[in-house]
Design a protein around this nucleic acid. Structure first.
Length: 103
DNA sequence: ATTTTGACTATGT
DNA sequence: AACATAGCCAAAA
């Protein structure tokens, strides 16, 4: 496991409920500005073992970009359950709910 | 023109 | 077999 992986895990774990974070943001916080894909990989892999709030991670447009329809639908439901407004079932108001990361 | 973002896939150990 | 890691390339702003 590289540092990057661990950092990403920590960051994702640190996302408070009712907030969301974007790939690019996480990648930047993890110290890899152009490696949003790596963040994705960590999400997919580590989510199985750890229980990471993967549903709080979305793309930079604030949309749920999962290819898995069931997963996407579930994510939307989870976000709504946390109090995050999801418009069009797959869109989140980044302005309101984007996590600041490290204030 | 430059910069940023990707919810994967292939490859190694 | 399973787990973990790295990265190109292309589209959008």
């Amino acid at each position: 496991m590289s540092e990057f992986t661990e950092i990403v895990i920590e960051i994702i774990s640190s996302i408070p409920s009712g907030k969301v974070a974007t790939y690019g943001q996480i990648a930047r916080l993890a110290g890899a500005p152009r490696s949003a894909r790596q963040v994705v990989r960590v999400l997919n892999t580590q989510t199985r073992k750890h229980n990471l709030p993967w549903h709080r991670v979305i793309n930079s447009k604030g949309e749920i970009a999962i290819t898995d329809e069931y997963g996407a639908d579930q994510q939307a439901s989870l976000l709504i359950s946390e109090g995050v407004a999801v418009s069009d079932k797959l869109k989140v108001d980044l302005e309101q709910y984007q996590w600041e990361g490290t204030p």
